Amino acid sequence: MSDEERPTDGGGGKSPLASRSFIAAAVTVGVIVAAGGVVTAINLTGNDTSAESGAIEPSGGPAEGTVGEEEYPEEATPGGVERSDGSESVCGLRSSEKDEFTGFPEDTSWGFVGMREAPSSRAHGPGVVEDNGFRHCYAKSPEGVVLAAMNYTAMTSDPSLYLDLLDLYAEGPGKEVLKAKVEEAGPSERVVGHIGGVRLLSYAADRARVDIALVIQGSPGGTVSYPMDFRWEDGDWKIVTRENGEMVIPVAALYSLDGYILPPAEVG
């Protein structure tokens, strides 16, 4: 796909987040059925959204394992301080001293995971691909956590993996909330779209925040920013949520891919 073909805001009109159906669809793309199809979609469509900015206010209390929001700026590494559980990669991938993501690794290959293309790297992960397509184990590196976020997002397009995806969440009350909702609701309807770009917002020791640009196809369509928080836990990157199971930073409308690292032109 060429840069000219990559959609951003779908036009110069009002925010796509003004549509309640788009809010639900966009969140479903970014999280497993519990957070996207049930919990978050219901909460977000009930919140006050801004048609001008597409902003959605966070809810549900502080993120698990982090200090209060008033103690660190939004752009800071989640958790505020560098700390690690000391674990090594469960599949033997090497860690890195880097703290920036400047591009996809040279050995990156791309393939469909569910309905979306996602990257793989022998050096950074996924180190394990199960027979059913479930992917896990990433290097403790900027590239590793970026690939973890992109592969997770791709796997949400495969309803058969909705229970497996629970293993990618950090331990805590939020994970238990998600587990209960997943078991109650079952898989959700798939949303057609692709990953338009990615950027690493923060990285330090055992914490990271990755922002995925999701391009939603169909009606109403549009592009959203979907930030994901991670912490290193038991030898792999795990998704951090608030205590109610929602993501730390909510989905928001995106009008430009400036600053995002785009997949190769042939991907998408």
Rank of each mutant, 00 (worst) to 15 (best):
V31Q: 14
I32R: 02
V33C: 15
A35D: 14
G36E: 10
G36I: 12
G36P: 07
G36L: 12
G36K: 13
G37N: 15
G37M: 06
V38D: 15
V38N: 13
A41M: 06
A41G: 11
A41T: 10
I42Y: 11
N43A: 01
L44Y: 14
L44M: 14
T45R: 15
N47S: 11
N47R: 15
D48T: 10
S50R: 04
S50N: 10
A51P: 07
E52V: 11
E52T: 08
G54T: 00
A55E: 08
A55M: 06
E57Q: 09
P58S: 02
G60E: 09
G60Q: 08
G60F: 09
G60N: 12
P62K: 06
P62A: 09
A63N: 09
A63G: 14
T66G: 03
T66E: 14
V67G: 01
G68F: 03
E71F: 06
E71A: 12
P73Y: 14
E74R: 11
E75I: 02
A76T: 02
P78N: 14
P78Y: 11
P78R: 12
R83W: 07
R83P: 07
R83H: 10
D85M: 12
S87A: 15
S87C: 13
E88F: 12
E88Q: 14
G92S: 07
L93G: 11
L93N: 09
L93V: 05
R94A: 13
D99S: 13
E100D: 15
F101A: 00
F101M: 01
G103E: 01
G103P: 00
F104Q: 00
E106R: 04
E106N: 04
E106S: 08
T108A: 15
S109H: 08
S109G: 13
W110F: 10
V113D: 07
V113Q: 09
P119C: 08
P119L: 11
P126H: 01
V128W: 05
V129D: 01
V129S: 03
V129Y: 02
V129N: 02
D131C: 04
D131Y: 15
R135E: 13
R135G: 03
K140T: 06
S141Y: 09
V145S: 06
V146D: 02
L147F: 12
A148T: 05
A148D: 03
A149S: 03
M150R: 03
Y152K: 03
T153W: 04
A154Q: 04
M155L: 10
